[in-house]
Amino acid sequence: MTYLLQFEPQFIFYAAYHRQKWNILIHSICIPTLVWTVGVWLSNTGDLAPSLSVAKFLPAFNGWAPEANGAFFGTIIYLAYYAILEPGAALFMTPIWTAMYLSEGWFLATVPNANVYALYVHIAAWVVQILGHVVFEGRAPAFTESLWQAVVVAPLFVWVEILFALGYKPDLVRKLDVEIKKVQAIKFGTAGKDK
């Protein structure tokens, strides 16, 4: 259980499957896309807690007002978990996920067949990621070993990789890179195709 509350071992596991720069780029695009499409579907729940009155804090846009729907609660749960794992990353991530939550609900409310479009985009994002693993990493995706990593840790991984590229916590980057190479050597018999 403590593993689930520790950033470094989860990041190392996930990163061992994602070291090639093109595959990281693919995931940096596709994982937020997957999160967004699921958010569109979760917006179908409607307002689950009218007493929260999210709409009081955020203005209506083009006839749609924010509500405490499934996407709202999903966003809160994910960000709370990420704040436990890596508070700085979660803080920087919050405005982006808030914008995603708002756009998910607006998209569902204003675009005919929004759920169908979200399905097409969702499937395409999975296909592109799997191809990225086969072509660039030469190995199966992390979800074949841990669905938790694919569904829960992946969005944080992508965001932290972007932050690392921007200079966030360089000492941690060096430390993690050493550990990632050790895990790759054990799992795959090699340090893998590196960045």
Rank of each mutant, 00 (worst) to 15 (best):
residue 30 C to G: 08
residue 110 T to M: 02
residue 174 R to C: 08
residue 48 L to A: 03
residue 48 L to M: 07
residue 172 L to C: 07
residue 91 L to Q: 07
residue 159 W to A: 11
residue 132 G to W: 02
residue 153 V to H: 05
residue 44 N to K: 13
residue 33 T to D: 07
residue 194 D to G: 12
residue 180 I to A: 07
residue 54 V to E: 06
residue 138 G to P: 02
residue 68 A to E: 10
residue 37 T to N: 06
residue 186 I to W: 13
residue 42 L to K: 01
residue 16 A to S: 14
residue 118 A to L: 10
residue 57 F to D: 15
residue 31 I to H: 01
residue 137 E to K: 13
residue 56 K to G: 13
residue 69 N to D: 15
residue 18 H to N: 14
residue 128 V to W: 08
residue 49 A to W: 00
residue 52 L to K: 04
residue 135 V to A: 09
residue 195 K to D: 13
residue 178 V to N: 15
residue 95 P to I: 04
residue 8 E to R: 15
residue 168 Y to L: 07
residue 39 G to F: 04
residue 135 V to L: 11
residue 163 L to P: 01
residue 5 L to K: 06
residue 157 F to Y: 14
residue 123 I to P: 10
residue 135 V to N: 03
residue 182 K to R: 11
residue 128 V to H: 07
residue 149 Q to T: 09
residue 43 S to R: 01
residue 154 A to E: 03
residue 104 E to W: 00
residue 144 T to F: 07
residue 66 P to A: 06
residue 99 A to L: 09
residue 103 S to I: 11
residue 184 Q to E: 12
residue 1 M to E: 12
residue 177 D to H: 12
residue 151 V to E: 09
residue 132 G to I: 01
residue 15 A to T: 11
residue 32 P to T: 04
residue 30 C to M: 13
residue 111 V to D: 01
residue 64 W to G: 00
residue 58 L to A: 10
residue 88 G to H: 11
